[in-house]
Design a protein around this nucleic acid. Sequence first.
RNA 1: GGUCCCUUCGUCUAUCGGUUAGGACAUCUGGUUUUCAACCAGGAAAGAGGGGUUCGACUCCCCUAGGGACUGCCA
Length: 482
Amino acid sequence: MTVVTRFAPSPTGYLHIGGARTALFSWLYARAKGGKFLLRIEDTDKERSTQAAIDAIQDGLNWLGLGGDEPPVLQSTRADRHAEVAHALVKRGAAYHCPVPAEDLQARRDEAEALQKKKSAEGSLSAGEQARMEDLLKPFRSPWRDPARPLPEGAPTVVRLRMPDTGELTVSDNVQGTVSRSYADLDELILLRSDGTPTYMLAVVVDDHDMGVTHVIRGDDHFLNTFRQLPIYIGMGWPRPDYAHVPLIHGPDGKKLSKRHGATAVDEYRDILGYLPEAMRNYLLRLGWSHGDDEIIPDEKAIEWFDLTGLNKAPARLDFAKLDSVNKHYMALADDQRLFDLWVARPEAKALPDAIKTRIRDAMPHLKTRAANLVQLSEQARFLTDLKPIQLTGKAADQVNEEARGRLAALLPHLEGLPEWSEPAIKEELAQFCARIGIGLGKIGPVLRAVLTGGAPAPDISLVLVLLGRNEAFARIREYAR
RNA sequence: GGUCCCUUCGUCUAUCGGUUAGGACAUCUGGUUUUCAACCAGGAAAGAGGGGUUCGACUCCCCUAGGGACUGCCA
């Protein structure tokens, strides 16, 4: 049997980092088993779905390299098929028409909530109220689940799924294990609204079945939904898919990840925080899944090793320090031109003069090994991007005293006279200069660094001179030499 | 309120009844050094609490505490 997995976001916003992780797991599993990974846009809620959100989600997935193997299925285009299944379910006795209006249902919930509030405010309820509350809190059972009960003439109805009166349902989930729930605890959910449109619960099942999905990998906020959806498979006589409900990602404080923790949208990780997609994949994979002591897991290995059984049940917290360290690893490996293109598109780089951009391009092999992300790369590149006159900060300013300025003045002609402007040549010249006037490198290095970089982080001083180029380097030294 | 799930260093995790409880990131100390980083050496750091079962429990069972999910004519 060919494995078919899917990612099925609802297009109401951006691609969430947690969603990206479940997409990654689905994608990996399909790749690991030589199967297919499909995309489905769950846009049945027309009020909240937007084309912009669809584009944003696809953009995020493509960036992460998690595109589907076929064009995405738009759930909204399949409403007729969903309704067809709902009616088939009614015919088979697995569902029924129910005329109870939405307002009645809402009134039930409101009353239950009021009673709960009263209880927590007053500590207890009268026996009658308590019984009423418990009754209201039980799953709703419509009087019309009795097939003998006649429907009121002309009243609009919804189609409800019928749950058996007794017994229980058992799910063997690849992550959650084997869990049972009794049918009595399950509500009889609505399949078709009174306007004839399908609900999410119905649409998911029908689409998964029709798309041939064999393994449903999704967030564990859907775990209990599995018990509500399975009776649809049973009612239609369809084979059940395998399930894997993966835990949600939490923020550093252990609470469900939200805006206040910082970045929740994957495009922020790309555009603002400056991470690489391959690093995101590696980090997200290790968040809740492991393979012995392996930390750096390139895609080939991930595909070779990934299996649903290694997934943890407990939610994992996002740790930016670790993400940085993984990203740093992949930055060092990344192609120079690629990194330059990514960097130059950033807001802090866009407006820079071409001469400086070229300087960065040339310095990329040295810059990329020193930064954990593109933000840090910009920081590490400051000694190349800052314009004259270089502002001296902190300790750098302290280095530039009269004596040191004199040494710079003495050194400058020797540098200017160098026939070859290369790292070894400069290193050699600096050593000779120090030997001639009887000082250690420590007497000239710090001040040279100070006037060249202003105190910004930078590589080896000889390399700094090379990367700056003759003219810029001499100009910066002249500012302070005397 | 009900049903279900989770809990090993600060964080991500290994362990699948017998280990000095391992690794990674972060952190600390020392080394190297012209800054930062890198690098090298080393350190500190964990089984939520309480009961069982067992010759033996992080591992199995129960209770408690804490966290989470669901309980919509939303998805």
